[in-house]
Amino acid sequence: MDLQHFAKQIRYYTLKELNHLGFGHYGGSLSLVETLAVLYGAEMNASPAKRTDPDRDYFVLSKGHAGPALYATLFLKGYFDEDFLYSLNQNGTNLPSHPDCNKTPGVDMTTGSLGQGISAATGIAKGNKILGKSNYTFAVVGDGELNEGQCWEAFQFAAHHQLDHLVVLIDDNKKQLDGYTSEISEPFDFVEKMTAFGFNSWRIPGNDIEAIQAAIQKAKSLSGKPVAIVLDTIKGYGVPYVAEMKDNHHIRPNAQGVQALKDAVTTLGHELGLGGNE
């Protein structure tokens, strides 16, 4: 699969999905697109046919507010159709802001209350280890989410149980809802912290597909410790209007913003040969 193309598709449909609703978590969804492209496009053993296969790889979006990007990815993988994608947050929907394993095909665990998804991911990885399986659990946490103490409980558990088939991806997009993470609660050096917590950890350019793929392949080659890849990302990546906005966690665009977001879809659509109309 052409992962650059797949990432562009995910970004295109994430924008269309959010634009259809008119507001939502643009910033943290867009920073994660390349990671989702690598996982679902190449590195993760997951598909609609394997939805309930216990040997599949598991994915937990602990930063659940990036659900729209995950949903665009799942749609492109064939878990559900395009109409389903545009039901995001509509009354009675099966596609809520934050992922729900009982509603949305392809979602392995309900998340959204920050810090809890990573704990569940350690339980999934531990469960598969008890069962003697060699499948992987991938969990995405946000840099802001790492404010939550529960994350650090989960990391202690993962390291103590030597969950080397758990890969934690830290979406270090430098911002949380109220502003820069460094101004709200200084995160210090995630690689040093994760290393101290007993992980194999390193930092990569987090919107660089080749770097992400190489890092995940490296993670699979390591054993004895869980892995934490710190993704150096840009919140709102790939859509200048969003990326350049200061407060881009949850966007309710004005008329000018609506046009900019439409234009972004059009541009991506042309690049993909899709037209890009709303």
């Binding site: 809890q116 704990s119 569940a120 350690t122 339980g123 990885a125 531990k126 529960q150």
Partner: peptide
């Protein structure tokens, strides 16, 4: 918190 969260993950598997 981890006890409950890990239990949820174990239930997933």
């Amino acid at each position: 918190a981890e006890q409950v969260g890990a239990a949820a993950g174990l239930a997933v598997t």
